[in-house]
Simulated scan of single mutants.
Amino acid sequence: MSNNVPSKFVIFGEEQVVVGGVVYWLANDRVGAEDGHDNVIVSFDLTSEEFGEVKLPDRLAYNNCCLCMFKPRESPVVIEGCVEDHKRVYHVWVMKDGVPKLFEKLFTISGHTPDGSLVSSVLGFRKTGEALVELQAHPCSIRTLVAYEPYSKTVITLGVSGRYIFVYSYTKTLLLL
Rank of each mutant, 00 (worst) to 15 (best):
S169H: 12
T171P: 06
K96Y: 02
T171C: 12
I156Y: 12
S75H: 09
T144D: 06
S2R: 13
D35T: 04
L174V: 12
I41W: 03
V122R: 01
Q16K: 14
L46A: 04
V17T: 14
G36S: 07
V146C: 11
E134S: 09
Y62P: 00
K55V: 13
F12N: 03
V17W: 08
C82R: 05
V155H: 07
K101D: 12
R59M: 10
E14K: 12
A27Y: 05
V119S: 00
C82V: 01
V17H: 04
I41T: 05
V18H: 08
R143F: 04
D45M: 06
S120L: 00
I156V: 15
Y62V: 03
H112P: 01
M69V: 13
F51H: 00
T154G: 15
W93S: 06
E130K: 09
T128M: 07
G81R: 13
L158K: 09
S152Y: 06
P150K: 06
L177Q: 15
N4A: 05
L106A: 09
G81F: 01
V155T: 15
P72K: 07
K96F: 01
L46Y: 07
V122D: 01
K101Y: 10
G21V: 06
E80I: 00
N64M: 11
T108F: 03
I156D: 10
